[in-house]
Amino acid sequence: MCGRYTIIVTLDELLRRYDVSGSIMPSHMPRYNVAPGQMVMAVINDGERNRLGELRWGLIPEWARDERIGYKMLNARAETLAEKPAFRNSLQRKRCLIPADSFYDWKRTDKGKQPMRILLRSKEVFSLAGLYDTWTSPDGSKISTCTVITTRSNEMMAEIHDRMPVILRPQEESIWLDRQVTQTDFLLPLLRPYEADEMYAYPVSDRVGNVRNDDEACVEEAALLL
């Protein structure tokens, strides 16, 4: 699963990384503990260029009667995207990238759950595969939301959890964003585990379990529970 992540790089770095220009950008500060229900940075393509903006984490399908369904739609399993009514339409035409530079997950030990920070060995920004949708509330206001797609864990992640977020390879990002690409047979093979030898993890403190903690201490290495 994916329930917490970091995006510490600057806004300028994000704009360069995703080739975004010419639009009004939201404010951005380094975030060390991004959590469900919060507004998160996301990249979409409007048919001509990439756009960077904010979506609320927790997908509310366009047809939903109640926005509270979003709390159940934080993640979407890659294996069932094409079958689930909540995700099927978004998979075809409303796909996004969610920039991150690490994510957290909790490893079970004899002493309890140990939070772990997982990164690429290159320490570069990567793109989580996401879906988005826009929901209109009874009062007419619109809420744009997203979900993070997960897949089975690779060999490295399997020691921590049996699921991991889908990290797209850089060369696949433009395909994922392309609205002209709608064939699920072409899209679903992109949603595979990232190469284990290009990732690593280290233990961090249980501070990340509290959403109010959002500072550099969240990413400091801690002693592993044994």
Rank of each mutant, 00 (worst) to 15 (best):
C2E: 06
C2Y: 00
G3M: 04
G3N: 12
R4G: 07
R4K: 11
I7H: 09
I8C: 09
L11Q: 08
E13K: 14
L14E: 01
L15Y: 02
R16W: 03
R16I: 11
Y18L: 06
D19T: 13
V20K: 06
S21H: 10
I24W: 08
M25L: 14
P26A: 10
S27E: 14
H28P: 06
M29C: 11
A35T: 11
P36Q: 10
M39E: 15
A42M: 10
A42W: 03
V43G: 01
I44M: 11
I44R: 12
N45W: 03
R49L: 00
R49I: 00
R49Y: 07
R51E: 15
E54P: 09
E54K: 15
E54D: 11
W57A: 06
I60D: 04
I60K: 09
P61H: 02
W63L: 07
W63T: 03
Y71D: 13
M73F: 12
N75M: 08
N75T: 10
E83C: 05
R88C: 05
S90L: 05
Q92Y: 13
Q92L: 12
K94Q: 15
R95T: 06
C96I: 09
I98E: 02
P99W: 00
P99G: 02
F103Y: 15
D105V: 09
W106F: 03
K113T: 03
R117D: 03
L120R: 00
K123H: 15
E124M: 13
F126Q: 06
A129Y: 07
L131H: 04
Y132F: 15
D133V: 02
S137V: 08
P138H: 04
K142I: 08
K142Q: 15
T147F: 09
T151M: 11
T151F: 04
S153E: 13
N154E: 09
M156Q: 13
M157Q: 05
E159T: 11
I160Q: 00
I160P: 00
H161N: 07
H161L: 03
D162C: 09
V166C: 08
I167K: 06
R169N: 12
Q171A: 13
Q171L: 13
E172Q: 15
E173I: 04
E173A: 04
S174M: 13
W176H: 07
W176T: 03
R179D: 09
T182S: 13
L187N: 06
P189L: 02
L190F: 07
P193Q: 06
P193K: 07
E195L: 14
D197P: 05
E198A: 12
E198H: 14
Y200L: 11
V204Y: 01
S205G: 12
V208M: 05
N210Q: 10
N210T: 03
N213D: 08
N213T: 03
D214P: 06
D214W: 01
D215V: 07
A217D: 12
C218S: 08
C218P: 01
V219A: 00
E220Q: 14
L226G: 02
